[in-house]
Design a protein around this nucleic acid. Structure first.
Lengths: 223, 223
DNA sequence: CAAACATATTAGTATGGTCTAATATTTTGT
DNA sequence: ACAAAATATTAGACCATACTAATATGTTTG
């Protein structure tokens, strides 16, 4: 059984290495705000436990076992966040620090119950996938709005980063999750979009906003 | 801020000293299954933090501050148990070990939300009071069924100790929380009771069972 | 009341998880 | 390619939380 501290290192490594498949001691150190020697010795321990591959002066990698255990922590975190928002009525900005603690609870039945009550979601409202109990994750579930082209119809599924200001911005424009957006026009020089949705037409979204909105295509071929 | 380990010592002391107002190092040691010297040095620390009164070779007492912080841990534990049962559908036997972990989460808003969703309960189904946010507890909320007299009508509010066998026993007799029990007769020689409820009459409950059932009087004077 | 027993304390050790300072290695820039 | 900078590692310290062994105090009982 891993301690919550060990779980935090695994989770950090999981997230930092998600693209390149590896991460450095320095990156983990900055991410967790823990000094490098501490990270170093912890990585030695995790390596002895068979969770991390750590050769001197080389980047860190998770073993398959380490990847699984890290994914389960991420699963617990994201399920908790969704549960707090969907079932208890918290706002998205309030739940992170609670989930950071609850993710270390050792009680699979507790998280499986949340999963059940939430209807087995595979992604959270930030577009981040929720790993399954087996550590599986759906990949690239959503698309950025900015990657779409003129004429497409898409459904708003999640927001990439939910700053208070962005959420407020979306609110004032009645852009809620689930809204169907039709792309009318894209300005080539600044990549801003003219879109219509819910009766509104020619709403302009800057490229910054379009980069933050995660959508699903609704065209015929995707069905 | 107290660590979860410190919180466990405070909670132990709170529960062990609830009747006499004090407890010994030995009692805490047995209760937590931690060796006496460890308890001793921890009590020294808690004493320095102003949470415990500890004079050499004397019993331990909580200070007012210590009592409050302990009560808040108990509050978190009992609210969590109730929430898991009432809102998530767990059975009473499953929730203790989950609550033992969640009680150490530092997030008042989380527990206050549970409290709100539960309708601000003051006692849990074992008849144990749930301390308020200010550490206040209702005293002697319920009565044992065995303390009642012939002719009284009472409502089953809680069970003193919920062993699997007792719960099963109650189940087979359709004795659920909220059932109104009428006391028909008490056998003087073994203190067993003949009671009626929900259409059943002359059901015999042994004194052992009557000691475990916590009830509330329904007679006129109590209103 | 004194011996035996239970309880409490002190002293010393270990491990997990953190730090700083010193040193080693790798990467970067001229 | 070499010096400087960035990164990584080792060594040594500290605190929290546990332990065992040894000792001290308090309680019970013949």
């Amino acid at each position: 059984m891993n301690s919550s501290v060990e779980e935090n290192y695994l989770k950090a490594l999981f997230m930092l290495s998600s693209t390149k498949g590896e991460a450095t001691v320095n990156e983990v150190s900055r991410f967790l705000d823990i000094k490098m020697p501490t990270v170093n010795s912890m990585m030695k321990r995790l390596s002895e436990k068979g969770l991390v591959i750590h050769e001197n002066y080389k980047p860190l990698k998770l073993t398959e076992k380490g990847r699984l255990e890290a994914a389960l922590v991420v699963r617990k975190h994201r399920l908790t966040e969704m549960y707090l928002v969907e079932k208890m009525g918290f706002g998205w900005e309030e739940v992170h620090h609670i989930a950071e603690q609850i993710e270390h609870i050792h009680a699979p039945e507790f998280f499986n119950k949340m999963d059940e009550l939430l209807g087995y979601p595979t992604v959270d409202p930030h577009g981040s996938p929720i790993p399954s109990e087996e550590g599986k994750i759906v990949l690239n579930p959503y698309l950025k709005l900015s990657e779409c082209i003129v004429g497409e119809q898409v459904e708003l599924m999640a927001v990439g980063q939910s700053s208070a200001s962005l959420l407020k911005y979306l609110n004032t424009r009645e852009l809620a999750l689930g809204v169907v957006i039709h792309i009318e026009e894209i300005e080539p020089f600044d990549r801003s979009m003219h879109v219509s949705y819910s009766g509104r037409t020619s709403v302009v979204l800057t490229s910054l906003v379009c980069d933050s909105l995660l959508v699903r295509r609704l065209n015929e071929e995707t069905k």
